[in-house]
Design a protein around this nucleic acid. Structure first.
Lengths: 147, 147
DNA sequence: TAACTATTTTGTAATCGTTACAAAATTAGC
DNA sequence: GCTAATTTTGTAACGATTACAAAATAGTTA
């Protein structure tokens, strides 16, 4: 499990600027939600969370912002679950993801070493996604009681 | 890269039977396509490929069969790519998947050792998916020439 | 500041993979 | 062969995402 970190709005704006993303209130809000929120949100979750703050917010803007932030390397798509895409801050330190089959919560885990060694060197690996599925400590416990 | 294996129809029927899947021509065809085809097909690919053989085949039947085969542990879902699900034979030997950003082809790779060690022992890991993305030897070469 | 241009946001409609559902067809056991 | 249970089929619905054009906003120049 990796610990979370909170980013101030000006830090986020700075990151966007250095990655060539023009600023807008909506974009900053979307980026902030991915970077600081409970994390790994879907587009719909972001839209639902931000709508009260930006009543005119459009779903399309959320999608546009996410795609832009992804193309510029600030966030990353996670296709850990069927049916929709989740988004994660593109951290410098690689990590894997654990999704709980009970509560659905996603937890960052350390990236195991030596992944690249398992791939024949003719293949140019550009990204590695590791999705672990199972039960988190809490759901594991409640399941034990059920059985 | 792992080598492929071909299953005869009676082997497939046998596997289905021992896993408690009732036989039907359509189900065998779907299972065979996943087990023997180019592999890692989507529901749509299966439907398109089998339609000529079973002109009455319905997309719903393909989905039904895939879900059943998955629930009975014969095949596995791969959410390696956004927007749709791919299916893979549930092999006894664990393996990871490489998807080429150039040609889209999916290649089986050996499963690196020691994945579980990276997860804190409070988490009950039930499955591990490793998705590698990059360029296969062929596409890597053609890209070199383009740059 | 005004005028002009480029970019972004918005809202609606369309698309695509998948699921729901009920009727028709098939299968299995007697 | 008959009856009950299962499977298949076709159509309609659904949910996430994308396309697109109009409206709003921001940036630039004068």
């Amino acid at each position: 499990m990796l610990k979370d970190r909170t980013f101030t709005e000006s830090q986020l704006a700075e990151m966007m600027h250095t990655h060539g993303v023009r600023l807008s209130a909506q974009r900053i809000a979307v980026f902030s939600y991915v970077a600081n929120g409970k994390r790994h949100p879907s587009a719909e979750e972001i839209f639902t969370a931000l709508s009260p703050v930006y009543p005119s917010l459009s779903r399309t803007t959320v999608y546009n912002s996410l795609h832009l932030l992804k193309d510029k390397g600030l966030i990353r798509e996670l296709e850990i679950q069927s049916g929709f895409v989740r988004y994660d801050l593109q951290l410098q330190e690689a990590h894997s993801h654990f999704i709980c089959a009970g509560c659905g919560r996603i937890t960052d885990m350390p990236m195991p070493a030596g992944i690249a060694d398992a791939v024949s060197p003719d293949y140019a690996v550009e990204s590695v996604d590791i999705f672990l599925k199972g039960f988190c400590p809490h759901c594991r416990e409640s399941r034990k009681n059920d059985l």
